[in-house]
Design a protein around this nucleic acid. Structure first.
Lengths: 357, 357
DNA sequence: TTGAAAGCGCTAACAC
DNA sequence: GTGTTAGCGCTTTCAA
């Protein structure tokens, strides 16, 4: 590997001159600079980032730990965060836990070892050790999307209680008497995200006079297949169900598939809605009512907060929960259906930010 | 930041002892090792990866450059590659070009600067400089998914000529007289992937006696919206069209949307097929015939090849193109439709690998 | 305008 | 079984 010293020797100058030539230091004459650069190209010089980072006491990088890159929302968060980081001269280092607590703690350790300047983390909430590691870290940290129990630091995510409320209100408005929440699988039900969703959903239902016979919450999962399987169960255990909030659009697509196959008229006999507002949900063949959440803004804001803290010592103590947006389609309101009159329409909030309680 | 030297001082030993304690060197007594580790934990020591990499002449990492993380297929490739890498003690460093040639060359430079041991790249094929950089790199490189013009090195990807042929054969078999290929947008049409697809598609069509009036290829794009818009054009410019190969499933979904809105009976009046076999394509409401490509195997094989080369000096000179698989659904064969008898069914290859011509 | 030299944190060869 | 020391490639201060 060719080093700065090789260039220096070849160009007949010192190491320092070479280094300063690259960094555009004014003390180097244009002639020398040109000569140095030419030699560098000829020798195919490539700077050694490790050496530079060691010397400078760290790299110009921010770490972003997500739990699943193949989730479209996390992927777009990465892209947003990366744009922001790059614009400000930082590199984004991506790590993935794959929903595995051991990988998560290892990833955090690796990130800290690579001396990133700041850390954005989407945690699995499975192991308190991760939270502990983050608390001990001597760099700015912001938890994104999920707020693990016991975590005291900065946070930015979706206001899922608001999402649950928004969904419940909508189902009531379109005339549902017995809305049911298809939530995550039992193994994931404990995540703060799903707890919050359920909380908001039930809060609105409980405000009605009529009480449901049994808790209107059924475990399902985040995939089409799990949604499909769960719906069979709902139809047996909750024969009164006439409205479905599914934990995400995929789950809703699965539930719709099973309902279709049973000859149930979606939109009429059964209202179905999801969360995520996938592109396919807008297709007329599907036309699934959904709730859109501002993942892009979350990632962008998180990255900005870290960088502002790094560059301008802005204190990093955000506790932000962004508001969701309802997208009504035919799965809850077939063409021509009026809004129920006994309930005033829920406000349709543009995603504005708000302090979380 | 606490260093190895701080631990040494605190534990009353030398730097070397601390270092060797961590690496499990046999010369350190258990007692000393314990003591050192305890002090390290107490001081919250975190090793400095830059220093280690500098000293060791490079990190234990492999770089993977993709053009779009938010594409589900690239995301799953990353996951596969990462699994393989981790299993063999390597870290995977992810970089993204976002289809931008400048970002691409910069990413390659950064990856090489961080002294990765090997490089997997999905190139945009827009700038020969990237290929040049890779040729000069003194590390093993493998091009994945796209084979840029002029690139001479190792390659593994899909056999898109075979995909084009498979699609054309299928459309003929189900009775199409005038199949049309909705390809990528004009700005992307030059990519080797789309060129290969078209080549295979036209090759089969040309083998028939009957010649088409005009070239049965229409530029569209990779999104639902582009597919939707392109179909209107097809219906005007190619009124004879009775079969559609779309460049991907999203494009096909868009085309179907427009066709639906025109009252065209998909599967009967018009056969439609896509490429990618997205999960939603299997939903009965969609039931889109598609072609599935072995992205996971590509990523896994690429990572394995690099690692085998690194660890066991296996020469890295793959030139692999993996075969696609056809998934027939109602958009080309509604329930009850027989296969045309004048053509024998195309072989339905399980994705086996083959040398590319 | 340039060169010499120190040192970032770590590892490994060599000495005890 | 443990300590001493040199040096990985780079940046930057100080001296010329």
């Amino acid at each position: 590997m060719v080093t700065i010293r090789d260039i220096a020797r070849e160009a007949g100058v010192s190491d320092a001159t070479v280094s300063l030539s690259f960094s555009g230091h004014p003390r180097i004459s244009d002639k020398t600079r040109e000569k140095v650069k030419k030699v560098a190209v000829r020798l195919k010089y490539s700077p050694n980032i490790s050496a530079r980072a060691l010397r400078n006491g760290g790299s110009q990088a921010i770490g972003f730990l997500v739990n699943d890159i193949s989730n479209a929302f996390y992927a777009s968060m990465i892209q947003r965060a990366e744009s922001v980081a790059n614009e400000h001269g930082y590199q984004l280092i991506i790590a993935e836990s794959q929903w595995n607590a051991r990988k998560e703690t290892k990833a955090i350790e690796t990130l800290i070892s690579s001396r990133v300047r700041g850390l954005m983390v989407i945690l699995t909430e499975q192991d308190p050790k991760s939270v502990e590691l983050l608390e001990q870290a001597s760099i700015p940290v912001i938890a994104v999307d999920t707020r693990p129990p016991g975590y005291k630091g900065s946070f930015i995510g979706n206001d899922l209680v608001a999402t649950g409320r928004l969904a419940a209100r909508h189902l009531l408005e379109v005339g549902c008497q017995h809305p049911v929440f298809l939530t995550a699988s039992p193994s994931m039900k404990g995540f703060s995200a799903f707890v919050d969703l359920e909380k908001g959903f039930l809060e609105i239902l409980k405000a009605r006079s009529r009480k449901p016979a049994r808790p209107p919450v059924v475990p399902a999962g985040l995939t089409i297949e799990e949604g499909a399987a769960a719906f069979s169960k709902v139809w047996k255990d909750h024969p009164e169900a006439d409205g479905l909030l599914c934990v995400n659009d995929l789950c809703a697509l699965g539930a719709m598939r099973t309902a279709d196959s049973m000859g149930i008229q979606i939109g009429k006999d059964l209202k179905v809605m999801g969360i995520d507002n996938l592109a396919v949900s807008a297709l007329p063949r599907i036309s699934l009512t959904s709730i859109s959440q501002p993942y892009d803004r979350i990632a962008q804001t998180a990255a900005m907060l870290i960088i502002d803290h790094l560059e301008r010592q802005v204190p990093l103590d955000a506790r932000l929960a962004l508001l969701p947006e309802l997208i009504v389609r035919q799965s809850t309101r077939p063409a021509g259906t009026p809004i129920a009159k006994n309930l005033k329409p829920a406000p349709l909030p543009l995603s504005t930010s708000t302090k979380h309680p």
